[in-house]
């Protein structure tokens, strides 16, 4: 961080870190439950990602606004109530707009309340920073989560059903990899992605070491 970062530069940094360097799924390995459970198709992944994005940005903004009013002792329960408010909004919106996807996601929408990415951002960032920064941070993390879900959901749907967003890619004779849309496929793809990230980190470390 330079000595006097401009407001815009600070916003950009806070936004960018969640997308890649501190990606909530691939780097922080948070929010595993929805990551594994609802990434069996692209549509589910998008719905989950958008809902989480909305809840994350909304509650980060509100928590940041109220950060000086919330007593320290009951902050966690306050965060949960704020988060639950936005989850209820998202739940109703999804049910009205895309009932089929809402039915498929089932309890996982309600479970966004206990998604540790969201609670983590409130405690680690929103409660200590002004609203604009909190929104930038939440948007970055939310986008990173969406990208991660989309990567996993895309791979799993392409291999497991031969389609992307329900559009068939390989024609009627495609042989689906049944395992990919089952829970083990989620673990395999997540493991592969984490392996890839670890490998890239190693390479970067080796390169930095060679430079230094």
């Amino acid at each position: 961080m330079s000595a006097a970062p401009t407001q815009q530069g600070r916003l950009a940094t806070e936004f960018a870190k969640g997308v890649w360097k501190e990606n909530p799924v691939f780097v922080q390995v948070l929010g595993m439950c929805p990551t594994l459970a609802v990434t069996n198709s692209v549509a589910n992944a998008i719905a989950m990602g958008v809902a989480t994005f909305f809840v994350l940005v909304g509650s980060s903004f509100l928590v940041s606004l109220l950060r000086k009013l919330i007593p320290r002792e009951i902050r966690i329960s306050t965060y949960i109530i704020i988060i639950a408010t936005f989850v209820t909004l998202a739940d109703s919106a999804l049910e009205a707009l895309v009932p089929a996807v809402h039915h498929e996601l089932g309890a996982f929408i309600a479970l966004i309340v206990v998604n540790c990415i969201i609670l983590g951002r409130q405690e680690a960032f929103a409660a200590k920073n002004p609203p604009l920064l909190a929104i930038a941070d939440a948007a970055g993390m939310g986008l990173g989560f969406c990208i991660a879900l989309l990567c996993l959901g895309g791979t799993r749907e392409i291999l497991g059903s031969g389609s992307f967003l329900g559009v068939s890619l390989f024609g009627p004779h495609f042989e689906p990899w049944v395992i990919m849309i089952l829970p083990p496929g989620g673990f395999f793809m997540l493991g592969t992605a984490l392996m890839l990230f670890a490998w890239m980190k190693q390479r970067r470390a080796a390169r930095d070491g060679a430079l230094a």
């Binding site: 042989e175 990899w177 049944v178 395992i179 990919m180 089952l182």
Partner: peptide
């Protein structure tokens, strides 16, 4: 085991 789970038919 992977093949059996992925392609049970074949």
């Amino acid at each position: 085991a992977f093949l059996q789970a992925a392609f049970p038919g074949a």
